[in-house]
Nucleic acid binder design. Structure first.
Lengths: 226, 226
DNA sequence: ATTATAGTTGAGCATAACTCAATAAAATGA
DNA sequence: TCATTTTATTGAGTTATGCTCAACTATAAT
């Protein structure tokens, strides 16, 4: 290298500090511009670094993306677990999970969009890893459904996978609508409608009058007759 | 250009013929390798052409992709319309649509995957156009639900959009599973389970007492009256 | 102060989408 | 049949960006 070209006199950070810094900047860029429209050079420039440094720590642009996704999944999975622990009853839990996911998507629409795009991508390694994180996160819904079946609240024979696909597939479409037109989601309303549809669809209760209403009526009639 | 370099003595086709040829080759490549892993040069080479020719006709790689998608949507939309015309009753129609879509995805998994990936992409023009085609295709389900509400078979207050998101969102997840592990889908089983969940979820029927329960009650009531 | 470690650099490579002026095959017209 | 026009096709660039790597130097260790 010619010694007249000025080398940047950068403050050098520890491995961990630099990685964290890059990770945060990358997340911001991906959220703002999406994966394809973000360049590594641009992430680096925002931190007064050059591309090479980023590649040194993360190997590839997709590797960087994957680390961003991992930290996001860790966040929301932990948050979901905390919240869900306090909720009792299958329908309430179903509602809670639905509402939580809608809320997450409403908060972090762009990042969720990036994650979903990447999880459907063609890099088998990346997809598989995101898939794994997703199964951890959506596993809670599966568990709720299985418990509901055991407790007799949900029809035996109900496929937990079908329910998972129904809930998360539906909400994904909500996301794409949101990303498309930018309008925020009416979280409570959609959560209630979706929960109602799904719970009616899989509930073991044979009636959908108000809780216990028909049973009480039948009891009263029978008593009257007797 | 130096005149010792051999120029290819190609048979020249009409605009229409060449476009059709390129379109077919592009579809095959996209299906086989996905959008990202397909190069325009490769599509051209397969037809003994050069990149320039493809760009001349389609402007851009994404433009070419969009044309492939358009023709696919036209195919399946027409096919769905034909089949649906012969089916009567809300539940049957719901089942038919669900089954048809699962069948389509099972037949053309790779192309469907490419379409979905692109429709979630960042090119607003492309996404909007695919969105439009999709609304035409999925509009039939919306119409079925609305008709069902009018006929009193489906609870008034049911959001047709929610139902659309539920059905197509669910099936999309089936697609990603299929693409992931390559295992073909049990079309009939999933169609039946999904239809059952959704129809129960939105059906106007208010009671479904246990087998014989209503009959017994009626008998008792009649006896009392007598 | 010297040495070792490792964070950082920047020039350069490879690939693939895209452009465009040049070229020749076919169509048109005399 | 020949000349002219039209247009399908070419291929040599240009550009953008992910990625590599050997050189370089700030900092810590001895």
């Amino acid at each position: 290298m010619s010694n007249n070209s000025e080398r940047k006199k950068s403050t050098r950070l520890s491995r961990e500090a630099r990685q964290a810094e890059i990770l945060a900047a990358a997340r911001a860029s991906f959220e703002k511009n999406g994966y394809e429209n973000t360049t590594v050079a641009e992430i680096a420039a925002g931190l007064d670094l050059v591309e090479g440094t980023v590649f040194h720590y993360f190997g590839s642009k997709r590797g960087l993306m994957l680390r961003v996704i991992e930290s996001f999944y860790q966040e929301i999975t932990a948050e979901l677990e905390d919240g869900l622990a306090a909720v009792k009853g299958t329908r309430n839990r179903l509602y809670y999970i639905t509402r939580f996911h809608l809320h997450t998507i409403n908060r972090s629409a762009e990042l969720c969009a990036v994650i979903l795009r990447e999880s459907r991508g063609l890099e088998p390694d990346i997809s598989a890893e995101i898939h794994r994180l997703n199964r951890l996160y959506t596993g809670h819904l599966i568990a709720v459904i299985k418990a509901g079946i055991s407790a007799g609240e949900i029809r035996s024979g109900t496929s937990p996978t079908l329910v998972r696909n129904t809930v998360y597939g539906n909400i994904e479409h909500v996301l794409w609508d949101r990303v498309g037109d930018g309008k925020p989601v009416d979280v409570e309303r959609v959560a209630e409608e979706l929960t109602e549809l799904v719970f009616r669809g899989i509930s073991a209760e044979e009636t959908r009058l108000e809780e216990g209403e028909v049973a009480a009526l039948v009891k009263r009639l029978n008593r009257l007759i007797d």
